[in-house]
Amino acid sequence: MDNLNNYLIVSAVLFSIGTIGVLTRKNAIVMFMCIELMLNAVNLTFVAFSRHLGNLDGQIFVFFIMTVAAAEAAVGLAMFIAFFNNRESIDIDDANLMKW
């Protein structure tokens, strides 16, 4: 396929948007969404390569990434709820009990 590059550029852009989002946002849930964006950029890369190379390994990898991302979301959101119960906030600037 000639347009492999296009897919790779889109996924690199998505990955960068996700990275910048994690670094600049303060809301834990938005940060987590940005992390999901990074993971999905990786999925896109895998699928594009898989199609280009004509082998299925990459697509199977994507299934694993999606499953793991779901498990991660379950744990992460539970953790945010526990934090919210104690601090009434999910702003990571409020996670400031421990410094240096």
Binding site: F15, G18, T19, V22, A28, M31, F32, I35, M38, L39, V42, E72, V75, G76, M79, F80, A82, F83, N86, R87, I92, A95, L97, M98
Partner: peptide
């Protein structure tokens, strides 16, 4: 403190997984 530790570890850990 434990909440905070878990949340920080989770966010940064998932970030590095990316």
């Amino acid at each position: 403190k434990s909440n905070e530790a878990g949340m920080k570890y989770f966010l940064l850990g998932a970030f590095s997984t990316g």
